[in-house]
């Protein structure tokens, strides 16, 4: 029985009158790369934000290394946050600081290490993502792919045990996107971290995943290894995996959305 790093149990999220996540269960094993698939607006980012403790959980619970996120005090939560790394959808670099300062910030804030040591560590992290020559540049001076790498170097600053990625290949060209995927695989193997990746890009998902789950209308509708997902006969999974035009997803849009559009929003 492998170790469980994160256990999502009956986690629920409600925005206004809309249940975005409906009592979902998910086990993430230590050292694996788990990909969470789902269409735009299906609640992937929300689930990720709940797992990093930045969005409150409305029902159920999430356990990280056996500890409940709901019961954590602010101090505990901060300790947990120091043990994870997050790569945000837009990179979320601090735009007023150089790449090196971005990576150094968590070290300066959370350790008493002298500046020389911090500089050394920053160089190591930047080398790991292939950005050492660009250390003194500002985020506005580098490309989208490089921003993601820099964000990743920053996420690695405190040697996290879990890495979260929100749409790592969004907005990148196929080649750069493949490079980022390689980096995700490399870090997973090299550092032995647990990786949780949210994406809707199937090519990328199949490249990096040990296991994948598909989120739809607040529930996980399928899960399995990339092989199992490819062979699935479920029409919804097939439509999502192969990007088909005909299937339950488009069917739903054609009928349901129009009615609710007409009836709901004008009351």
């Amino acid at each position: 029985m492998p170790d469980i790093a994160i256990k999502v149990s009956k986690a629920t999220k409600i925005f206004g009158s809309r249940t975005v996540l409906d009592a979902i269960d998910l086990d993430i094993y230590r050292g694996e790369t788990l990909v969470i698939l789902g269409g735009s607006g299906s609640g992937k980012s929300t689930l990720l934000r709940m797992m990093i403790g930045s969005v409150p959980i409305d029902g159920g619970d999430i356990l990280v290394h056996g500890k409940s996120l709901c019961d954590m005090s602010r101090t505990d939560l901060n300790e947990y946050r120091k043990s994870i790394g997050v790569l945000f959808q837009s990179g979320a670099l601090y735009n007023s600081m150089t790449i090196a300062d971005n990576v150094a910030l968590p070290l300066r804030e959370h350790t008493d290490l002298p500046e020389e040591t911090i500089e050394l560590m920053v160089k190591i992290k930047l080398e790991l993502v292939g950005l050492r020559e660009h250390a003194t540049k500002l985020p506005s001076e580098i490309s989208g792919g490089m921003k993601k790498r820099a964000g990743l170097a920053r996420a690695l600053a405190l040697d996290p045990s879990i890495l979260f990625y929100d749409e790592p290949s969004a907005g990148l060209d196929p080649v750069t996107s493949a490079e980022i995927d390689e980096l995700i695989i490399k870090l997973n193997k090299l550092l032995g971290v647990t990786s949780v990746v949210v994406t809707h890009e199937m090519d990328s998902a199949f490249r990096i995943a040990d296991r994948m789950v598909l989120l739809d209308r607040g529930k996980f509708v399928a899960s399995g290894t990339p092989e199992q997902m490819k062979k699935s006969t479920d029409p919804l999974v097939r439509q999502f995996v192969y990007g088909l035009i005909d299937g339950p997803l488009t069917e739903r849009k054609r009928t349901g959305a129009y009615e609710s559009d007409l009836l709901m929003d004008n009351i």
């Binding site: 946050r81 997050v86 837009s90």
Partner: peptide
């Protein structure tokens, strides 16, 4: 702008209080 570009959330995710910082 920092809020929109997820920078404030990034600070929080690294246990750096945006109010303090």
């Amino acid at each position: 702008t920092m809020q929109v570009s997820e920078e404030i959330e990034a600070l929080e995710s690294q246990a750096i209080s945006p109010v303090r910082f």
